[in-house]
């Protein structure tokens, strides 16, 4: 089973987010291939700690690849293993598949030679003993999201004369759908049509981010993007990725507008410029 949540463990763990190790990198990358019968997961990983690498070498610790889709599969990985294969009848990737590398102790491990620990744990390292069959660290998570049919689209538009308003913004399963009561509302007869639609885009972003907060927060007001798992909703996942890319840590009702400004490219400024241009040209 994949584990991601930051928490305080009873002894130092090597993860990408914890501060127990001075330099804690446990990086996994996976590439997916398929043939008629199997899926092949090609793996590569990188561990920063010499101490931990030595445990793997000496077979005191064991890498375990966890592949979770509808259920969990565990594979013991030797350092020389480059890939694992799974029959298609035993794994489905049409939904979300999450992959992580865990490191499990094969024997009782004393940390007295572990020079990679952060200051606090270094003081106690003589006394730190990790029992057999316990986790020593876990990597980042690689997600393959197969249920997405429009992986890169964020917006759709529809003309729908039946809506009870001029514009209706619907949050679809993967995209924001802007419904226009008629084509004129799209400014499609104007050379600036793409910019003139920006206010609708803005409205769509606002609505989607608001729902993101509702879907992904405990209190309905703010989301700590470093704490939550990648959302399962495909539209939320896109926003999650966009925000992560722009290094946004927190989304809240208070900062929605700042977040829109960060993840989009000056859409209102461009809109204002277009309107000003049109009014000057007397078009």
């Amino acid at each position: 089973m994949i584990y991601k949540k930051d928490a305080n463990f009873p002894y130092p763990l090597l993860t990408n987010t914890s501060t127990s190790y001075e330099s804690s990198n446990f990086i996994l990358d996976v590439n997916l291939h398929e043939n008629s019968y199997n899926y092949r997961f090609e793996i590569s990983y990188e561990i920063d700690s010499q101490f931990v690498n030595k445990l793997i070498e000496n077979e005191q610790a064991q890498l375990v690849l966890v592949i979770q889709s509808k259920d969990n599969k565990f594979f013991y990985i030797k350092p020389e293993d480059k890939y694992i294969e799974i029959q298609k009848s035993r794994i489905s990737i049409s939904n979300r598949t999450t992959i992580q590398l865990h490191l499990q102790s094969k024997a009782e491990i004393n940390f007295k030679d572990n020079d990679d620990l952060s200051y606090f744990y270094s003081q106690f390292k003589e006394d730190i003993v990790v029992l057999r069959n316990s986790i020593l660290g876990f990597s980042n998570v690689v997600i393959f999201e197969g249920s997405s049919t429009k992986p890169l689209e964020l917006f759709e538009k529809k003309v729908n004369p039946d809506i009870k308003s001029d514009i209706k913004i619907e949050l679809g399963s993967e995209t924001i759908i802007i419904h226009y009561k008629n084509e004129q509302l799209q400014f499609n007869d104007s050379p600036m049509s793409n910019t003139l639609n920006n206010p609708y885009i803005y409205m769509g972003l606002q609505k989607a981010l608001y729902r993101f907060i509702v879907n992904n927060s405990d209190d309905g007001e703010q989301v700590d993007l470093e704490q939550i798992d990648a959302p399962t909703d495909n539209l939320d996942l896109k926003f999650y990725n966009l925000m992560k890319k722009k290094m946004i840590n927190e989304l809240s009702i208070d900062n929605i507008d700042e977040v829109i400004y960060s993840i989009s490219d000056k859409i209102l400024e461009k809109y204002a410029g277009a309107v000003r241009g049109l009014s000057l040209n007397g078009n």
Partner: peptide, 14 residues
Amino acid sequence: SYPIIMSPMLEKDD
């Protein structure tokens, strides 16, 4: 106890 104890991978006696 998971993942400190990686129970799904343990041998039966453990």
